[in-house]
Every structure is written in C-alpha cells, then in structure tokens.
C-alpha cells in the first residue's frame, strides 16, 4: 500500500513539476492572472466604484457578493451538520462508555483564568475593530468573526464549556448564525425592493443620505456584520461540539 502511494505521489509530483514550467514566472507582471481585464478593473476602479481602499473587502463583499453569501451559508450548514452528527439521541444519549480512560476533571487554573478575564474584553474590542475597519485595513467579516469566536473559545478553555455557554449557548449560536445570513440576504433583498438587483447595494442610496458609492461602502459594512455573526456563532458551535464529543458539558 505504502509503495503504491509513494509511486502515485512521485508520479503526480513529476507531472506537476513538468507542468510548472509553463506557468508564469514569479511576480510576472504579464501573467494571465495579472493581465486579465477583470483583475485590472478591480485594482483600478474599486476606489471609483465603491470608495473602499481595501480591494479585497470590496471584491469579497460587493463584486463577488453572491459568492460570499453562499459561502456564509456553507459555514452555517457545516455548523448544523456537525451538531447533527455529534448529537446523542435515543440509546446513544446515556451511553457513558466514551469517557477517556483516567480522565480527570481539570481545575480552572488561577493564572490562566485571570489572564483570560483580563484579555477577553480586549480581544472582543479588537474583533470589532477588525470588523469595522475592514474597509481600510486588512480585516472584514470572516476575520472579525473568527477573532470574536476565539474570545468565546478562550473562555471555554480557561474555565469550562458551561461558563462559555452562559454567554453564548449552542442553541443561541445556531440562531445567531441564521440571523447573520438573514442580515446578508436581507440587505440583498432590500436593494432588490428599491429597484436594483439582488445585492446591488448602490440602490440603497435611495434610503441612505449618501451617494451611490458611499451606499455600497456602508452596505458592505452591513454585510460584513452578517458574516461576522455567522462565523462567530459557527466557530463556537464547532468548538463546543467537537471538544466535548457532543455532550456539551465539561471542559476540553
């Protein structure tokens, strides 16, 4: 088996290296990816179209907004799937067998808990900064959501899961994830109601007291907030389910 695997791997490697000769060189300005009119348009006109300095955020939330929306849906579905896979039902519910051998109940460590108590508010503030400042500096919904989720995970790590579930229970997390997608889709539908197409944020300038470009700028922020809700909730739900094998009790 291992020999077959090695042979397959080496063969693939030779093929890939052979093909790599035809790829554009490192940093080539004329490579197909860089020379294509699409990428040139993204770089040249993002500022004109949306007034967002961070092109990645603009492409993510505006030009490719549809893609990102279903990306968020994928995360949501993954969270639900994990909960569904690990949930104990029926005869499984009271099967005690799966405690690891000699598992000890970890006491919350004094130093760790105090540090975490100090850090969690700062981390959440940083998450909001990353989320809200995502237009100007690196950041956005996904990153801010992950940092926010990490703050909850940190609480669960330092004390135990129930302490974190007091703040964000898994049920509420699933709801929050749904709310995030609703925010995203709601902004899209709202711009549809205003006469544009789905996720055509510029139409929001009819209700917001700003220009069409700035409407896209602000709608992107709203969309990112929706994404951040979903990512926060799903990250925490994944952690809670995976770390306790679906029992949702005890520490890691």
């Amino acid at each position: 088996m291992k020999k077959i695997a090695l042979a397959v791997t080496v063969l693939t490697g030779i093929l890939l290296l052979y093909a790599a000769q035809d790829f554009p060189a490192w940093g080539d300005l004329q490579s197909p990816a860089s020379a294509s009119p699409v990428s040139k348009h993204f770089i040249a006109d993002t500022g004109v179209d949306t007034e967002v300095p961070n092109m990645v955020t603009a492409v993510l939330a505006d030009y490719r907004g549809f893609d990102t929306m279903f990306e968020t849906v994928v995360i949501f579905i993954a969270g639900i799937a994990i909960i569904g896979i690990l949930r104990r039902t029926g005869a499984d519910a009271d099967a005690p067998a799966l405690k690891r051998e000699n598992e000890i109940a970890a006491e919350p460590d004094l130093i760790v808990t105090n540090t975490v108590r100090l850090l969690v508010p700062v981390i959440q503030l940083f998450a909001f900064y990353v989320l809200a400042h995502g237009h100007v500096s690196p950041g956005g919904g996904f990153q801010g959501g992950v940092i926010m989720g990490a703050s909850f995970i940190l609480v669960a790590l330092a004390w135990d899961l129930p302490k974190a579930m007091d703040r964000l229970s898994v049920d509420r997390a699933v709801m929050l994830a749904g709310v995030g997608i609703l925010i995203y889709a709601g902004i899209g539908l709202f711009s549809m109601l205003l006469g544009g197409e789905f996720l055509d944020y510029a139409e929001l300038s009819h209700v917001l007291p700003v220009s069409r470009e700035m409407a896209r700028y602000h709608a992107m922020l709203g969309v990112e907030i929706g994404v951040a809700f979903t990512v926060t909730a799903v990250m925490f739900a994944i952690y809670a389910n995976l770390s306790t094998r679906g029992r949702l009790e005890g520490g890691l």
Partner: peptide
Amino acid sequence: FIMLTSPTSTHALMR
C-alpha cells in the same frame, strides 16, 4: 499582549 499571553501559555504548558 505578548507580555501577558506568552508567560500564561508557558505556565499552562508547564502545568
């Protein structure tokens, strides 16, 4: 941040 977290994680690992 590093001043707070690095000793903490070291302590946790040590323990």
